[in-house]
């Protein structure tokens, strides 16, 4: 493929992207099977769960039939998958309304929280990562290394607790519970979600900065950078003009990996601040063993993760001049 002529370069890239896309779809399919199988392994079943211990076997059998639980597992899997794809993943057992409606209410909140956190985290993380790479081995670099190394290992609820203590208990600037509703203005909304965003960003920034630093330093050791240094190119120019174009793929990869962390971190952060998002919905689904809802939430999180990884890989393919050349 490296020997491909420049004209076929673009089509080679497209083929690669197509293959990568297909493999993501296949992975998602396998993930859906895994989640379905695990969710169906629970002792007892949803019908028994819904009716409680006092139900007669006939009642349970009738409800099982009504819910379609008496069909063989592979039939249930196919109909569940078909439902997921067509946007109807079944009925939520606890809320007693379609899963799609429950999720439709929460998903925009989560996406907004993730987007705002990313917006805060990306520039800070890039600045820290590139800054400490340029100062490699120096005092600032070593200090930042210790700080980010510690931040990646701190539990979210400690960051959240400290944020609440500072900003809502001591300074009384922000509410300690996240408010988010459609009838709020932007100012109120931002005040309401400032602390969840802060908490999520802190840990994402630490992770992303570390990976960005590693990506930039990896390039700094290459001969072409040494050449530029010997030519007397200014350090800032070396980073921006020489290193960055080559480090884009690993940096985007780092961003995608860190942002995928937002998915898991949101589980704790949404719960501690009572934020009405998808992750806290999923926690409720676990507590109430609402399997249809849980499966749908899990699939959304997995799909989001796979999409992020896909974006990272496609960027890497497009950033490779051998494939991009037209």
């Amino acid at each position: 493929m490296a020997g491909a002529s420049t004209r076929s370069g673009m089509s080679a890239a497209l083929t690669l992207i197509g293959k990568r896309f297909a493999s993501s779809l296949l992975t998602l399919l396998l993930v859906s099977m895994t989640i379905f199988v695990i969710a169906q392994l629970l002792p007892g079943d949803a019908a028994q769960e819904a009716l409680g211990q006092s139900a007669t076997p006939e009642q349970v059998a009738a409800l099982r039939h009504e819910m379609g639980l008496d069909r063989p597992a592979h039939v249930r899997y196919v109909s569940w998958l078909a439902g997921m794809v067509s946007g109807d993943p079944g009925q939520s057992l606890v809320a007693n309304m379609p899963v799609s409606e429950v999720i439709a209410e929460r998903l925009p909140n989560s996406l907004l929280l993730a987007a705002l956190s990313a917006l805060v985290a990306l520039p800070v993380a890039l600045a820290i990562g590139i800054g400490s790479a340029m100062n490699r081995g120096g005092r600032i670099d070593r200090a930042l290394n210790i700080v980010t190394l510690s931040m990646v290992a701190v539990p979210e609820f400690l960051v959240a607790t400290i944020a609440v203590l500072i900003f809502s208990v001591k300074l009384r600037w922000l509410p300690s519970i996240a408010m988010a509703s459609s009838d709020m203005g932007w100012g109120d909304y931002l005040r309401g979600v400032a602390m969840p965003i802060l908490t999520l960003s802190v840990i994402v920034i630490a992770q992303m900065a570390r990976m960005t630093r590693a990506a930039v330093i990896d390039q700094m050791d290459r001969p072409y950078v040494e050449m530029a240094v010997l030519k007397g190119v200014a350090p800032v120019r070396i980073v921006l003009r020489h290193i960055m174009p080559n480090a884009i793929a690993p940096i985007v990869n780092a961003m995608a990996l860190s942002l995928s962390y937002l998915l898991g971190g949101a589980v704790i952060v949404e719960t501690i601040f009572n934020y009405p998002g998808l992750a806290s919905l999923m926690v409720n689904a676990v507590t109430s063993r609402d399997m249809p809802l849980l499966q749908a939430c899990a699939m959304i999180f997995c799909a989001a993760y796979l999409i992020l990884m896909l974006i990272a890989d496609v960027t890497a393919i497009l950033a490779n001049p051998r494939l991009r050349a037209q």
């Binding site: 992975t27 396998l30 993930v31 895994t34 989640i35 695990i38 969710a39 392994l41 629970l42 995928s260 998915l263 898991g264 589980v267 999923m282 926690v283 689904a285 676990v286 063993r289 399997m291 849980l294 499966q295 899990a298 999180f301 997995c302 993760y305 796979l306 990884m309």
Partner: peptide, 17 residues
Amino acid sequence: MLISIPSKIFSLVLVAA
């Protein structure tokens, strides 16, 4: 395949089951 399920999400499903 397993590694592409975020770990917190995976463990939540396992705990529920």
